[in-house]
Nucleic acid binder design. Structure first.
Lengths: 185, 185
DNA sequence: ACCTGAACACCGTTCAAGT
DNA sequence: ACCTGAACACCGTTCAAGT
């Protein structure tokens, strides 16, 4: 019953994983249904049995990353008991971790329609971790929320500046400064 | 000698202005040589007499904006004598000004190759204004540079968060807080 | 259930040929 | 100097037809 003589049938997941690799290499704009179909030695038409359109594919790819990546990473950080240590770990993640290519896409192409939803969910989760940690450190709820937003905006802008070679030379702001900013009364 | 019977000859500038309007409406990805040619009732081929390629067109469009916009705006701010007042004016520009569509493109598509150069120049100019103002306010040079970077990263991230409807609800950080952050000893 | 093949529209780029 | 027209490649999307 397989029409792909000799080749295995393709699932939605196969396409999504191939798209995720394409995003890794060239961002969202590097995802071309046509090229993926050629790689699979199949037709573009067959793609449209599995997905409604290209945006659908990109969303599926990023959700794959979201499931396998974000939740796990946050879990590790959350397992730290002392809230101040946890806060330092969060900030260190941002300033020291070698940068994940998908993360870069998520930040720098966050405005692309198929990326926006995943970006929002990941960001909400991270803001929540920041806020609750700041509350444990001793800040009132409202102030914690405000500083979490501040810290996350800082993270986003920091990485955007660093991505531009002409600007990277002027940065970055030191990590200690950010910690002080977050925890000062 | 005009081959465009009845129609005026097109200049590089005509194309660049049309492209700038297209960016205003739909960002960099909204610029299509094909569509512009149709609007001008000419052929795509004629476009390539004026420009090397599409990126060339986009760069020209943004440079138009850069000349007519950035330098002027910075000039107004720089004319304020008192450095603390000037600093407040700069921050107010960011947090209160109705958002210019081209500015949004500059920030959210800063990583697109034809945008990167303009983004870098505009950012350098703004960082310089911030730093020199902070020095006048009384900070040492190195600390001023660090805080200028911090403030600008904050600006970029702030706007990126605000652009996402799901996230806009949680912000924004108050302007007073940022001023305090910049000027505290 | 899953795929093929052909069609259509849209777009970037090149280039010989026109005026 | 500036433009036309045709060609080519690449891509997204649809859909009737196949197995």
């Amino acid at each position: 019953m397989a029409t792909r003589s000799g080749k295995p049938l393709l699932s939605r997941d196969d396409w999504a994983r191939a798209a995720l690799r394409a995003i890794e290499r060239g961002g969202v704009k590097g995802v071309a249904v046509d090229r993926l179909a050629k790689e699979f030695e199949t037709t573009r038409g067959s793609f449209y049995w599995h997905f409604h359109d290209r945006d659908d594919l990109i969303a599926a790819a990023l959700e794959l990353w979201e499931r396998e990546n974000t939740t796990d990473r946050l879990g590790v950080v959350l397992s730290i008991d002392d809230p101040l240590q946890r806060l330092k770990a969060v900030v260190a993640e941002v300033y020291e971790r070698p940068v994940d290519e998908i993360e870069v896409t998520l930040v720098s192409e966050a405005h692309e329609p198929p990326v926006a939803a995943v970006f929002a969910r990941v960001t909400q989760a991270r803001l929540d971790v920041l806020r609750s940690t700041l509350v444990e450190v001793g800040l009132p709820e409202a102030e914690a929320e405000r500083r979490a937003w501040l810290a996350y905006a800082l993270y986003l802008g920091h990485h955007q500046l660093l991505r531009n070679p002409d600007l990277a030379a002027r940065g970055p702001a030191s990590m200690q400064f950010v910690i002080r900013l977050l925890t000062s009364p």
